[in-house]
């Protein structure tokens, strides 16, 4: 799995880093950043997908 955030879309809703704190973090403005592009286990992958379907701006892309 490869996780990316489209910075042009992200508005800092914070859903990703709250749902999947092992995969996503935030910058000083509170916008989302990817911490671990390839989540190491099933649990992290599942949470990354959950973050994706909760992002109001559709800013998270996941390549399986």
């Amino acid at each position: 799995m490869k996780v990316t955030i489209d910075a042009a879309r992200c508005q800092g809703h914070g859903r990703c880093f709250n749902l999947a704190p092992d995969v996503f973090g935030f910058d000083e403005l509170g916008n989302g950043v990817v911490l671990v592009a390839s989540p190491p286990d099933d649990r992290a992958e599942r949470l990354a997908r959950l973050a994706q379907v909760n992002c109001p701006e559709h800013a998270i892309d996941i390549e399986e």
Binding site: Q11, G12, L50, P56, E57
Partner: peptide, 19 residues
């Protein structure tokens, strides 16, 4: 679990105080 709600708005005016 899947809840793409818009309570804090959408786009450039996303609630700055949402956290």
């Amino acid at each position: 679990l899947e809840n793409r709600h818009l309570a804090f708005g959408l786009g450039i005016h996303r609630c700055a105080g949402s956290n």
